[in-house]
Amino acid sequence: MRVSLAIAATATALALVLTGCSAPQSSPADGASGAPEGDGELTLYVGRDEALVAPLIEKFTEATGIEVTARYASSSELNALLFEEGDNTPAEAFLSQDAGALGSLSNAGLLSKLPADLTSIIPAGFTSANGTWLGITGRARVIAYDSETVDAADVPKAIAALTDPKYAGEVAFAPGNASMQSFVTALRVLDGEDAAEAWVKGMSENSPVLTEKNGETLDLVNSGEVSFGLINHYYWFEDAAELGEDAMRAQLAFLPGDAGGMVNVTGAGILKGSKDDPDALAFLEYLVSEAGQQYFVEQTYEYPLLPGVAAPEGLPALDSLVNPKLDLSDLESLSQTQELLAKYGLL
């Protein structure tokens, strides 16, 4: 109890400091002062696991008194739902599993512009370039390998190597997955269109094992069905928490500097109709507060994006993975990536 009070106090103090530092045009809607002028209620769409987010929301309500009504579904379903609802959406804010969903909502003009004092909390490159959504956590792309058949030293240091015929039928990935697609986009941005096309072509000709989800990919590696899987790093930690670390046949290899080891972000945005809604803003502020960030670190093993919060133990430093030549806002050309994947029969 005392700990959570301390966290709440820290969060409020932090929010106060941050708003204090902000530009002079601080609008009355900036509800971080502890006395929000909203209706004290927030309707939230959550594209992440309920077991993960519900306790966080409870802490938020405890800290701010704002009652939250949350609607849980997958990010893609909620994204489709938000598109369908358009201006009639009852949602005020959207917490998304991936930045791509937020980017597409932003492009369709469905998100409101966030105040600069909020967006400036998260370092550039990990949040939206146009200030319509806020990066919350980072997730690294990794190679999961079967430690019973592959030596750690033999795991490729770059995904380019996986087109080698000796890996035929041994690599699993989920081409429809948003993180996977943003990695291919990163490959196009970093290594050029020709190199990316060569890689996609090479993979498609190397009898890849196609899955629907990262979790399935990891299951395949963990059961020894395939030697390698391209996934996000935290899936391994989730499985390890469920099955026990000793039961994990799959191990992870991080790929610093390689497009295949890029860092994606999860994020949140405020819907257009709720622009500057103090309750929604307070929630976003809470997500990037020390308390909120710490919660994600402990529960999901994702990278915190707030400077000063330590990454989960056992993970390479975020800075070591980030490729300075890559900006997340460069990853919006998703449709070209999909065309590329479709061209070689992967989508």
Binding site: E77, N79, G100, G176, N177, A178, V209, E212, E216
Partner: peptide
């Protein structure tokens, strides 16, 4: 779950990643 690509899985993917 069986990773058998059919029209319904493609529909889900279309909503999922491409928002198309």
């Amino acid at each position: 779950l069986m990773r058998y690509p059919v029209l319904t899985t493609a529909i889900q993917q279309a909503y999922g990643a491409s928002f198309n």
